[in-house]
Every structure is written in structure tokens, then in C-alpha cells.
Nucleic acid binder design. Structure first.
Lengths: 206, 206
DNA sequence: GTCTATAATTTGATAGAC
DNA sequence: GTCTATCAAATTATAGAC
């Protein structure tokens, strides 16, 4: 966290912002260079071409959102506490990186063939402690009788969806539901955490 | 549904497929022309330029996914029946147009300035019977004591998210959760309908 | 209305001086 | 390592014949 940032770092940082916002094709090299405060030729000097820069960014973004949080499920807490902690922290993580989920889904569904190698490579790197430990936790709780016998994958999707969907759809939802982005947003999100835990726990308890 | 389709219709149909799949920038005019089985010059003849064609497509797509289904909430059924019907039919609608939710969210969040006029114009057209009637229904049920007193907007988001999220995230989820796209997918979605109704109803009942 | 050929523009990539 | 100037390729848009 030194005052001077290497050029490579500046590029990666700027590229992440632009790519996440505009997508692979919407992002322009010139715009990234401007955002990084350097010259367009530097992008090629450090990353050879747009594709390679994009791949690097995608990798970083992916790791950022999947590489953490599984530790919550590796404690001895009750399921209720684990879930409460997870939703609290995951909501925070997503709120701080609001555009990332949409970016990842968009790029994967759009990228089709060309992106699959990158995607699979990342999958190999065991970044996926999160879904695995989460689902194991659910299964354990089912066996202990803390949760009704429901397909744990479906519970997992419902929980993640309940947290993530709001942030993906916020541009529409805020208009539809008349949530003032500047004033009420933070309260709405805090309220949301509590309600999601509440609905899910009541929804799956025996 | 005549055998011969007007050229304009052929273009719009093809453009929708390509734009929804590849996004505004990923889609190329040549590709759209090929898909429509006509010449590239025709696109300009009918729609002047790419932006206007895109705007038309966006409008159509938006209407397709928001213009229906509110009638479910205008019946005298119990809340439980309404919700069951809604989730069943909305799941079907999304499954048949799987790429549309992601497309809409991506384009709105990406389009920023240029897209807002289109978006607002569509909003004016009262296509939004769905969220309004849905939320009113929830509020009524709360007053009747069929549902606990929870912010109806939060319930709305949770329900829509539970239905839509799976389809948005399917490319990732199917890998993570090892759902075979060809073999198990349909069963998984049918199972999902039942479980979502189950979790939500138990989650919000008094 | 529809096509082919071509212009105009955008944008990724490189050469070469410093 | 960094920059300016320039090239090459891709892509949108138009002209003009039929």
C-alpha cells in the first residue's frame, strides 16, 4: 500500500473498473489507458493485447468474489449463527463490489467458447471452498434435524440468490420500488439482511 | 403467423437473438444480417443505424418479460394459490427466455446515460402492472394476517430473486453444483418450483 | 426493396524516438 | 519504460445499380 503504484498495478486497477462496468467488448483500450493515467501503448507493453489483459482481470475479479468467506462455515457455531454471519458478510462483500456478480455472469454466458479455458482453469485452483463447505454445512444440519430434508443445492441457490439478486437488479428495482438510492439505500440493505435471514430460517426449519 | 414474414420482422427476430446473446457491443451487424438471411444494407434501410435497431429490440424484450402475469394477482384465490401459480408460470416464462433477465440487467447497468431515455419511456407505458399488483397483494395478505408483517418490497425481491437467480447464474451453478444440463436440468427446475414455494410460504407465514 | 461495392470510422496493435 | 505517430483490421454506414 505504498504511495507509488507500479504501472502494471495502475493498469490492472483501471482495467478492472472499466471491464467490469462495460464488459469485454464495451470496454475500449483507450478508455482504460485514460483511466490508468498512462498511454495506450503501455497496455500492450505490459499485457501484449486486449484479450490477455481481459483474462487477467477476469481471473482477479473471480477470485475476489469466490476466494473468501468459506471460513464462516468451518466453525462450531449453530446453523442459525453461521447463516446470519454469512448473509451479513456476504451482503457486505457484494455491496462493496456491486457490479461484479453481473459482470461474471454476463461474461460467462456471453463469452461462450473463448472464455471456457479461463473459467475452467480458475475452477481448478480450488477457489471453490465456498459452495462446497456451504453445502456440506447444510447437509450436516439436515442430518442433525435442524433443517427440513430439502435438496441442499436448492437451499444454497435460494440463499445466494436472495443476497445477490437485489444488487444485480438494483437499477430496475430501485425505480420499480421507489427506493431512493442516496437516502434510503443503506437502510434498505440493512433491513434486507435481517429479513432474508428471517425468511430463510423460518422457511427451512422443521 | 403467416408463412411469409416481412423483412422487417425477420430482422427484428434475428436482432433480438443476437443482441440478447452478445449484448449491444458484442453483436455485429453482419452477424444479425446473416441470421436474418438478408443483406447488411437492409438493416440500415429499415432501422437507419445500429443504435436504433438496438433500441427497438430492447423495447420489445423488455415488454416481453414485464408485460404479462399480473393477472394472476387479480383473482380471488388464497395467497398460497396465487403464489404457487405465479412461481409456476413465471419460472416457465423465464426458462423459455432464459437469457433475457441477464440481458436487461446487463444493458441497463452498462448503458448508463444513453439507455436511460429508452428505459424511462418504457416505464411510462404502464407495463408495470406486475410489481404493483404483486406488492399490493402482499400488503393485503399482511393485513388479513396471512403473512407476517414484513416489508412487502423485501418479500417481492426475495420471491423474484428466488425464481430468476437460478437462470441468470446457471452457467456457473451447473458447474459448481454438478447439474447435468442435458439430463437433470428439467427435473431440477421442476423441483425448484416446489421448494421455492415451500420455503417462501413457510418463511413468511405467521 | 434488395443487392454489391465502397467509403468512413472506430479501435486494436506496432514502430521507433527518447 | 514511456511516449507520439502511424498502421492494419474490423465494423458501421452509404452510394448507386437493378
Amino acid at each position: 500500500m505504498n504511495g507509488k503504484e507500479s504501472t502494471e498495478q495502475k493498469i490492472l486497477k483501471a482495467a478492472m473498473v472499466i471491464f467490469v462496468q462495460k464488459g469485454r467488448h464495451g470496454a475500449k483500450m483507450q478508455e482504460i489507458a485514460d483511466a490508468a493515467g498512462i498511454n495506450k501503448a503501455m497496455l500492450h507493453y505490459y499485457f501484449r493485447n486486449k484479450e490477455k489483459l481481459y483474462a487477467k482481470v477476469f481471473h482477479n475479479v473471480f477470485a475476489k468474489i469466490f476466494g473468501s468467506l468459506h471460513k464462516i462455515f468451518e466453525t462450531d457455531e449453530s446453523f442459525e449463527n453461521k447463516l446470519t454471519n454469512f448473509i451479513d458478510q456476504y451482503t457486505r462483500l457484494i455491496a462493496e463490489n456491486q457490479q461484479i456478480p453481473l459482470f461474471i455472469m454476463r461474461e460467462i454466458s456471453e463469452g461462450a467458447e473463448e472464455l471456457k479455458p479461463i473459467f475452467n482453469e480458475i475452477l481448478e485452483e480450488k477457489k471453490f471452498a465456498l459452495p462446497i463447505t456451504f453445502i456440506e454445512t447444510i447437509n450436516n444440519s439436515i442430518q442433525k434435524g435442524e433443517i427440513r430434508k430439502i435438496d441442499s443445492r436448492q437451499i444454497f441457490i435460494t440463499i445466494i440468490g436472495s443476497v445477490v439478486f437485489y444488487f444485480i437488479a438494483e437499477p430496475i428495482l430501485s425505480v420499480l420500488l421507489k427506493v431512493d438510492p442516496d437516502f434510503q439505500r443503506e437502510n434498505f440493505i440493512e433491513e434486507r439482511k435481517i429479513i432474508v435471514v428471517d425468511i430463510i430460517l423460518n422457511g427451512i426449519k422443521p
